[in-house]
Amino acid sequence: MANQIVGIEMKLKTGLAEMLKGGVIMDVVNREQAVIAEKAGAVAVMALERVPSDIRKEGGVARMSPPEIVEEIMGAVSIPVMAKCRIGHFAEAMVLESLGVDYIDESEVLTPADEQYHIDKMDFKTPFVCGAKNLGEALRRIGEGAAMIRTKGEAGSGNVVEAVRHLRALRSQIRRLTTLGSEELMNEAKELGAPFSLVQWVAREGKLPVPNFAAGGIATPADAVLTMYLGAESVFVGSGIFKSQNPEKLAHAIVQATTNYQNPKIVAECSKGLGSPMRGLDVNLLKAEERLSERGW
């Protein structure tokens, strides 16, 4: 646990992330979707203005969800409610904290508000989750105070390939750190662009000091299972659910598959009769500026 590093506040922040492990966190844009998510067994919901695939389609600046929508969703369900703010937009984060959301996602899915700095997350009582593509990025965010890391994946693509790439990168970079001698770690911290104390911690423990979840492009129960096998401890599902033909059934199936990820018979059973999933994009055909995972520094 990271609490040896940053104390009591961090214990409460990562503590809530511990409680969300083995679960599914679903993107919702209104009260009706939040209720469907809770009934399907979601461990938390993420309130946002538009799901990533719509942001991609419609373009324009994507911002924090309007406060009344966040409050409406908080009032509709008893599970934790998360909400997204723009990278570096600490004023949006302050608004979300004052509304009492349970987790803030400083997210590359929204249009960044600062192209140099992320939010100083230590300053907040509300815990933060941040996206990462690799170990260096994950440790920079943890160094700033993130209490949970998720892969960036490629949000709104319906294509799991980027989430897989990021999970594999994290896993192999962590494994590599554990094989290094103590004298090699400072140079490694330099190469990774990560705080030395966190590099030392990961080299010793062989894992991230905060929970690590998967996100970005998960569209089917088997996608969720794949990410669990690659070391994700929970799964975020964004556009995948409410852009599918049968959201209720798919939400239900992804929850069941995530819990029973080691049991392919159950995964097969719950994958039946779901109708067509969201259509999905070939991420190799996306232009550099269309790749949300490139946002964040």
């Binding site: 511990e18 409680m19 969300l20 492990k21 083995g22 679960g23 809770e38 009934k39 399907a40 067994g41 979601a42 461990v43 938390a44 008893s78 599970i79 934790p80 929850v255 069941q256 819990t259 029973n260």
Partner: peptide, 15 residues
């Protein structure tokens, strides 16, 4: 263990 009780009830029944 700790977690979300609504999720656990749902999964206890499914399993």
């Amino acid at each position: 263990p700790g977690g979300e009780s609504t999720t656990m009830i749902h999964l206890l029944k499914l399993n």
